[in-house]
Amino acid sequence: MDDPSTRGRYACMLDYRRVLAENLKAARKALDLSQEELALEADIDRTYVSGIERGTRNPSLTMIAKLAERLKTTPAALLTPSGKSPAA
């Protein structure tokens, strides 16, 4: 999707990396966890958590599910833009 020839085609798509970044950070802070604490509990590197929160990493669905479980939420909630609730 970073290919300039496809940008127009996907212009209306949400930036799900940014949505995930914002929601992951908010969920982590709501549980008063540091990036390091979340990383340790999810058995991943702290810099990976940081990359997801900055929107520079593109985690797998399995990783999103793993993080959601630790953050006591759902993958759908982590991928839902602010102000909208995930479909049930």
Rank of each mutant, 00 (worst) to 15 (best):
D3W: 07
A21I: 03
T74F: 00
C12V: 09
R70H: 15
D15H: 03
M13R: 10
G83L: 04
D43F: 08
D2M: 06
R7C: 12
A88M: 05
S85A: 08
L33S: 04
E69Q: 14
P75S: 03
N23G: 00
K66G: 04
L79S: 02
L38P: 01
G83T: 05
S82Y: 07
L79M: 13
P75K: 02
K25C: 07
E22D: 14
E41C: 03
D3P: 05
E36P: 03
P81S: 05
T47D: 11
G83H: 06
G51H: 11
Y10D: 04
P4I: 07
L38E: 02
R70K: 15
Y16T: 10
E69I: 06
V49C: 02
S50N: 14
M1L: 09
R46L: 01
P75N: 04
R18T: 09
V49E: 00
R54C: 14
A87E: 14
A87R: 13
A39T: 04
L61T: 12
A68T: 10
V19C: 06
C12T: 14
Y16G: 03
L14W: 09
P4L: 08
A26T: 04
G8N: 12
E41T: 12
R54M: 08
T74D: 02
T6Q: 14
T47S: 11
A68L: 07
T74A: 01
A87M: 07
T74M: 01
R7K: 10
A68E: 03
L31P: 03
D15M: 05
A68Y: 02
C12G: 09
E69G: 05
N58T: 13
L78K: 00
R9F: 15
E69K: 14
M13D: 13
L78N: 00
N58V: 12
Y10H: 12
P4R: 00
R70G: 09
A77I: 01
A27N: 04
A68M: 02
Q35N: 07
L71I: 03
I52S: 00
A26L: 07
T6C: 05
R7P: 05
N58G: 12
D15W: 00
T73K: 01
L71A: 04
L20S: 00
A65R: 09
R28W: 00
L71V: 04
T56H: 11
S50M: 09
K29T: 08
